[in-house]
Design a protein around this nucleic acid. Structure first.
Lengths: 231, 231
DNA sequence: CGTGGACTTGACCGATCTCAAAGAAAGTGG
DNA sequence: CCACTTTCTTTGAGATCGGTCAAGTCCACG
């Protein structure tokens, strides 16, 4: 990690081998008065692909999904953001992706002009955001591997491990704020396949499904072997 | 585009609708004396995933592929870089991906310490690299859509259009420096499928294949409709 | 409670993969 | 420079994983 890296304590606690970049920039100097909180209802759109990029957002509570759409309705979810995560994706004039509320949530909205001003006045901010953007790039490469080369079962294993790594404690119940359709569109599968593979993992005693929106991991090793393709 | 954006003339020349971020940072202030040229033979590794990230690279001539590997040998090529492209992917201590020469090529190598020093001393550099990294992020989202939701034929169409956009002139012959295996690993397909789909596009008079490593696009509209999923 | 959307499960289908082999291109050594 | 070898590419036939279509089932919410 670089000297200007953020939240080193948290990062150090994460498993080393596939360290999933923390997405927050909590320590970033974004003066509080620049932003304002906006409450979003479930499925409400934060911004649309193609709209002028007038604001930048950080998730305060709840979860937000980033997605792209094809004319015929096919959807690819490219990322999920939760509390603390800054939605740093683009500094072009227009949003390149769409952001939607997965659950009722609150986002903090910063005017583009304020962020750009800050970037010019505070060199550290550019540097920190560069680090953040590069982490996202690495995590995007992971996701490309998942989408391009892993089988359905492996994609689910990878997905669940990714969620587990963001959790405070191992073995804890993982909450899935998103629907099966969201998971399917994130993993390049259908809802039916997601459902079937979760059932299969449950039957193999790798996970339990206390309810539709919770998972507990019983056999981390099994999941890791699946996720890494160690057949 | 931002005011500090680079090569506006070139960017403006590109088609607007799916403007593929230029990857070069030719105007970036990377003092020439900091780097040294290194010649690479075909398939030689520029750097390995997991190695200490001691250097950063820009492609001087030839082509470089970025890839990730799974323990059982499955490979995902996440990007191709050609002359002028800076390999900005990561500012972590270790490389998160592997870079290999697609063809015999020359890369310019910059010591990590020099780049980091420059980032601290020149705020503009961080800002420009942030813009660059964000462009790469957007292009990564495109690729995730391709890998997660497009059918084989559509992936090929998207790939060929992407190459065409980097070419100087429409209608010109496109050179494919990479093998069918590279293309397959980039698109999440097998070599056989790549070969079959290229043949199909040729039979439909959408493209011609003057030789194995060249393509000419005859019917751009057909290719665009395929690539965008306008069935 | 009752209702509608979300989730699961089953049967079948088809796009892509696997395996196999022939043909073309590129590298190698005499 | 040519003959040989090796690798890459194309094409074919059959297998398979995940998708599609179609019911059921389960909750969440009114």
């Amino acid at each position: 990690m670089l000297t200007t890296d953020i939240r080193p304590a948290v990062s150090a606690r994460l498993p080393q081998k596939s360290a999933p970049a923390a997405k927050t920039i909590d320590d970033l100097e974004l003066p509080d008065h620049l932003g304002r909180n906006v409450a979003m209802k479930r499925d409400q759109t934060v911004f649309w692909e193609g709209d002028p990029a007038n604001s930048y957002y950080r998730v305060v509570s709840g979860a937000v999904r980033i997605c792209k759409l094809m004319p015929d309705g096919r959807r690819q979810v490219t990322d999920f953001f939760t509390s603390g995560d800054m939605i740093v994706l683009d500094f072009a004039e227009k949003y390149g992706v769409t952001a939607e509320a997965v659950t009722d949530c609150v986002v903090r909205q910063y005017p583009r002009t304020a962020i750009l001003g800050l970037l010019n006045s505070d060199p550290r901010l550019s540097r920190q955001m560069l680090t953040l953007a590069c982490r996202r790039l690495i995590s995007a490469q992971h996701q490309m591997m998942t989408l391009g080369r892993k089988r359905a079962e492996e994609r689910l294993a990878t997905f669940l491990l990714g969620l587990a790594e963001r959790q405070p404690r191992r073995g804890a119940r993982i909450e899935l704020p998103m629907s099966r359709a969201d998971i399917a569109d994130y993993l390049g599968l259908t809802v039916e396949t997601v459902s079937r593979e979760l059932t299969k993992l449950r039957q193999q005693d790798v996970i339990t499904l206390p309810n539709t929106h919770s998972v507990t991991i019983i056999d981390v090793e099994a999941l890791e072997q699946l996720g890494e393709g160690v057949a």
